[in-house]
Amino acid sequence: MSVSLNFSQFIPTIPFILQGIGVTLKIVASAALLGFAFGIVLALFKIGRIKLLTWLADLYTSIFRGTPLVLQLMIIYFGMPQMIGFEIEAFPAAVIAFGLNSAAYISEIIRAGILAVDSGQREAAMALGVPYPLMMRNIILPQAFKHILPALMNEFITLTKESAVVTVIGAMDIMRRAYIVGGDKYAFFEPLLIAGIIYYILVMILTMLGKVIEGRMRKSD
């Protein structure tokens, strides 16, 4: 058996693969924002008193967690044009799919975080005459976020890694570029390894960032 790895021929392709970082990060950041905002809304529905909204939010979560992400992505990119009558670009399709998917996970994290806040906080706010929306925004959610920051960071990291499936709809992310280079040179191992290293470094940076933010937020403990 002969193992032949030749990295030198791939050095000129590295900048091309690196450009995928921007694409990946843009998709991940936009999807995270969408997922976070929508996740908060879903979480508020879940803990709210309106039964119909609770039911809808639970159903939503169950569907998005109960089906493969790559299927959701393909439905939005390949399937939706049939319904809405126009094509969707790969980038918005990816953001929508990842955003909607992570909203389901994030809403569960936030719901648990809200419920973990001592009920006395809510009572103290109510006793001061603080209206519900303000109480949520200024008193309950900030405390909930402190508890759930590690879980949120985890979700963000998962999203970064999972974003590699956008390659199936042709978005030019890290993964896709590595694959293209591999096809060019009839050698896939080296470019995929390079892609793997890039993902790993991204995840390490995100992990460190999470630790820093967490440390900052602990200042009041």
Binding site: D118, G120, Q121, E123, A124, A127, I139, K146, S220, D221
Partner: peptide, 10 residues
Amino acid sequence: VFQHFHLFPH
């Protein structure tokens, strides 16, 4: 005023 204070910790 509550038994367990319930100050806003943040």
